[in-house]
Amino acid sequence: MRDVEKSFGAVPVLRGVSLTVHRGETVCIIGPSGSGKSTLLRCINGLVPITAGSITVAGREVNDPKLDPLALRRDVGIVFQQYNLFPHRTALQNIMMAPVHVLGQDRASVETRARALLAKVRLTDKADGFPGELSGGQQQRVAIARALAMNPKVMLFDEVTAALDPETKKEVLVTIQELAGEGMTCILVTHEMGFARRVADQVFFTDGGVLVEEGPPEQVLDAPREARTRDFLDKIL
């Protein structure tokens, strides 16, 4: 990702962000509210078109006008803070929909895979539950399984634990940690410093639409070089 800029109308949100995430890495993006973290994440799968700069994801140029945004999104899974499950479909159906309708895969094999994913996020018994009947943590794990069902190369997580209580937070973080351990490339926006310390290969601190500091978690979180990073960390700890 190089020199990425994004403005909503005349309001600049990203003002030249450059960062690199290697295959198989897990990175955390931290920063104050409104610093453009969600926007940055949404630029990566083209949900938000960028104003300037370039982003390359698994060999695809996001800003290329010839790019098929749907092809990009098949390779990049995203999970949101508010789960955003489809309320009219069961957990299993939520997971199966995209592989069946978008990838055109065979229903039976998708169902086998979907059930395996539900087992992976420890929700085997909730297959036929509707989102409204699941707890926040359960919904979020279904949302992760739903994104994984597309066999993405990269997973984006936007404050996926922010709306959860500490216990359910842990269920979800464990799931993500396992995923990272299996070699999935994960980009997380998070305020879970403990998680970032344990799991992240790199931490990026953004503020005011620019990347202020980056490095391994021990450095950025425990011995920040920038005053702004120190301020932020002091405030949230």
């Binding site: 949900l47 098949r74 949101f80 489809f86 309708h101």
Partner: peptide, 16 residues
């Protein structure tokens, strides 16, 4: 709107 975002994130086309 999040329903649209979630669908777009899963590579659903507009009509789908």
């Amino acid at each position: 709107e999040p329903q649209w975002s979630a669908a777009a994130g899963l590579a659903f086309g507009r009509l789908q």
